[in-house]
Amino acid sequence: MARTVASGYDIVTVTGDPDERGYRYGLAARTRIELALRTYADVFMHYASWDWPTVRRHGLRFAGPIEDFSPASAREIRAIALGAGVEVADILALNTRSEIMFAAPGRARAVAASECTSFALTPERTATGSTLMGQNWDWIEGARETAIVLQVRRDDGPDFITVVEAGMLAKVGINSSGVGLCTNTLISDGDEGRIGVPYHVLLRSVLDSDSGAQAVQRIRSTSRANSANYLIADAGGFCVDLETRPGDGDCGAIMPVDGAVTHANHFLVDGLTGVDRYLERKTHTRNRLHHLTARMRQQRTHTVESLQEALADHADAPDSVCQHPDATRPPADRTCTIAGIVMDLSARSLIYTSGSPCESTWSGPVGLNASS
């Protein structure tokens, strides 16, 4: 196990089977996991007047679906808890916080509407001839104190790197098979906290896949707990944006147009929801998508540097691609960019910011052959 800091978020590297790597992860990230638990306890109290024991009870409802879908992930969750010195229910609650928010009363669903804007460019649109993809991951400000870069080296699946909240299985990342993953919140009129495979467990399943096509099939064939957007590509040229709704029904597939895919937080495929609940609450998702798409069209081929600039876009601020916390709002209600991320699928590496791309130094590259 290694825990290093490279001018950005902590880099935690773990190895071994699910029990060993989970334990090492929990041990290395213990302080940040404890902070994440306190942060979400405040969030649920603020939005739903739920105490943490109530949140944990709701998280435990997903133990069965996780076990059935991925026994290895279930083992890892239990081992993370052991390493961090917390209850399994605590780590389940972190990994199912999106689903619990949809089940909670009052205003809890509002905080589930985070702002993320993502892209992928196929080789003909990049100066390096590699697929490049990335996004701004936007969430509550407290996640800036709990985010880490997790590197996992293992024999039971591809190695992977993910930028994620401490204690959680995965978020945005890339694996040693060249599979890359970006993601965006979607909220359909069917998102009501149903029991199914949780969002962050499905994100992890993408990084467990040997190809983009395999990752898409895993998501398509699963009874999903809530809606989400999965932008999946691989180094072999596969690229698709998969919009999903709760359950095991149809998904919407968006293919690259002129070598590019962009996405924000509203449905683009007809028929997946009667009412787009995110768009209903936050119409600026359309503006963010417009501005990022325009950035992609500004030049025929992009470099890593031009993509960094795109993620620092402030058009229509404060509701822009690059977001900043509003200090006038309560801490549990402040959303902002937690990390800007750009991935090179051929190099199996990523670079990232610790905070808003316009004011943060880019760290990395963090690669799957790195010794950090």
Results as ranks from 00 to 15, higher is better:
A2T: 09
G8I: 01
I11K: 05
T13H: 15
D17F: 00
D17N: 14
D19N: 12
G22S: 11
L27F: 06
A28E: 13
A29S: 13
T31W: 02
R32E: 10
R32N: 06
L37G: 02
R38I: 04
R38Y: 06
F44S: 04
M45D: 11
Y47S: 02
A48N: 05
W50M: 15
W50A: 03
P53G: 09
A63Q: 12
G64V: 10
G64T: 14
P65Y: 11
F69S: 13
F69N: 02
A74K: 03
R75C: 12
A79H: 03
G83Y: 00
E87S: 08
A93R: 00
E99M: 06
M101V: 03
F102K: 02
R107T: 03
R107E: 11
A108S: 12
A108K: 01
A108Q: 01
R109K: 15
V111Q: 05
S114T: 07
E115W: 04
C116L: 09
C116G: 08
F119Q: 15
T122Y: 00
E124Q: 09
R125S: 11
T128G: 14
M133G: 05
Q135E: 11
W137C: 02
E145S: 12
E145H: 09
V149T: 14
V149W: 05
V152M: 08
V152D: 09
R153L: 12
R154T: 09
G157E: 10
G157Y: 10
P158W: 14
F160W: 13
T162L: 08
E165W: 00
G167K: 08
K171G: 06
V172F: 02
S177P: 03
V179D: 04
V179G: 04
G180I: 05
L181T: 09
C182F: 00
D189C: 02
D191F: 03
I195F: 00
I195E: 07
G196H: 10
G196M: 13
G196I: 08
H200Y: 11
V201A: 14
L202N: 03
L203C: 13
S205C: 09
S205H: 11
G212R: 09
A213H: 10
Q217T: 15
S227E: 10
A228D: 04
N229Y: 13
A233T: 00
D234Q: 13
A235I: 02
C239V: 06
E243N: 05
P246H: 08
D248T: 07
G252N: 05
G252T: 07
G252S: 05
G252L: 04
G252F: 00
V257Q: 12
V257D: 08
V269S: 14
L272E: 11
T273M: 11
G274I: 01
V275M: 05
R277Y: 01
E280P: 01
K282C: 03
K282T: 03
T283N: 05
R286D: 02
N287S: 15
R300S: 14
T301S: 13
H302I: 02
H302C: 09
V304D: 04
S306E: 15
A317H: 15
P318T: 06
T328V: 08
T328E: 14
C336M: 12
I338A: 08
I341K: 15
V342S: 10
T353H: 09
S356T: 10
E359C: 14
S360N: 09
G367K: 02
G367E: 02
S371R: 08
